[in-house]
């Protein structure tokens, strides 16, 4: 039950993050919206692992009756967290490189400058 609720909430979180990525004009806000999407999907995996029980999967002796959480989604999503951290760092670095040259974070202005340079 807990798992299902968490899964539905995290999918709505993904929706919110994606809309934020489309609507915001500021580059930093776009990156943060991507962060919301990634956090939501990480939360969803916790939800998946909570379907079989919510006791942490650290076994003490006998495990016949206890409803342990499923360890596999929890373990794989550690990798997902590391990857989203790496992506966040890289995107901020790119944003800083762009800002240092053009002194703006507005996406439309940046793209206008680039299209003018192309000609």
């Amino acid at each position: 039950m807990t798992g299902t609720i968490v899964i539905y909430f995290s999918i709505s979180g993904m929706l919110v993050g994606t809309i934020g990525m489309i609507l915001s004009k500021d580059l930093i806000k776009k990156i943060l919206s991507l962060g919301i999407v990634e956090t939501s999907i990480n939360l969803m995996y916790t939800g998946i692992s909570a379907r079989s029980g919510i006791i942490p999967p650290i076994v003490s002796g006998d495990f016949s009756n206890a409803f342990y959480a499923d360890p596999i989604p929890q373990a794989v999503i550690i990798t997902g967290i590391v990857i989203s951290f790496a992506l966040l760092c890289l995107s901020l670095v790119f944003a800083i490189i762009i800002y240092n040259r053009y002194h703006t974070m507005n996406v439309e202005t940046i793209e206008m400058i680039f299209e003018r340079e192309e000609r």
Binding site: G3, R51, F63
Partner: peptide, 10 residues
């Protein structure tokens, strides 16, 4: 979400 619930922990 109530599909196949695996219990691989054992």
């Amino acid at each position: 979400s109530s599909g196949n619930i695996p219990r691989p922990i054992e």
